[in-house]
Nucleic acid binder design. Sequence first.
DNA 1: GTCTTCAAGTTGTACTATACAACCAGAAAC
DNA 2: GTTTCTGGTTGTATAGTACAACTTGAAGAC
Lengths: 154, 154
Amino acid sequence: MTAADRSRSEERAVEAIQREMTVFARRARASAGRMHPELSLVSYTLLGHLEERGGCRATDLAAHYALDKSTVSRQVAGLERAGLVERRPDPDDARVQVLDLTEAGRHILAQVTVSRRAAFRERLADWPEEDLVRFAAYLERYNAWPERPPGDGR
Amino acid sequence: MTAADRSRSEERAVEAIQREMTVFARRARASAGRMHPELSLVSYTLLGHLEERGGCRATDLAAHYALDKSTVSRQVAGLERAGLVERRPDPDDARVQVLDLTEAGRHILAQVTVSRRAAFRERLADWPEEDLVRFAAYLERYNAWPERPPGDGR
DNA sequence: GTCTTCAAGTTGTACTATACAACCAGAAAC
DNA sequence: GTTTCTGGTTGTATAGTACAACTTGAAGAC
């Protein structure tokens, strides 16, 4: 294979990755909404992050998801209203509110995770294990890229 | 490797795919907005589809992206107002409007494609060709799954 | 042929997610 | 002790979306 062949093939692959990731993104919210109307994609990811980290600050959520802090503030307010998260003032710093899941939050998160997992598994049912593992690794690698927060106009 | 090992490994991979796809989806719109403010992710994908197909009906767009037809109607109206698409009545069926890119639409789509491609390429710069090709194939395979339109509560 | 039903698209309405700007309250730096 | 920084909330505006009701034309049923 010549260098030109290689670069053409890479070029095609990059195009395809871009196109397919975009299609996926376009569809994700809609299908999440239909899969579990009780918990939007945003809420789901925020709760998931809280569970994974065992609680964190609103600012951490904003940074991780490249969201404005006002957005997080409102989302969290909604989740608190729904009784899914609770906040405690940080004893070390009175400005900080440590967020954590409530029991109800843990419960609903687990339910949604189950239903999402079932949907994903159905979709991936006939993939060989080797491909699943590799696909997961590619996605992780792809996402391990620093996102710039909103307003950071670089 | 035992069957139990295999299923655990698959389980982990499915979880990771779900999680990473979700993170990606959460970030995509925001980064698209920062990458090319003149063309939202939605508009970009719609224009891209028109280019790829060489024009199509609004209903086709709705089906392909799992959007409500009203959403597509408004999006297309905006694109038409912006002079990026034009519609002609279908000679075979007066209800149908065939959509297609204008020259301006083609032009801006090409520009945005260039800038998106550059961003993706930067991000994927140190991936070996083999991995790019495989990753692209996985994504295509993943997305080749029938989406259900909104309102189809199955 | 007329009538009913179906399909494509538009419009009214409402809601969610989002950003940006202005602000407030504590903490830290000097 | 000011000034500056950081975490968070609130006001306001916008985009994207869905659902329902409607219009118009096509296609079948009889």
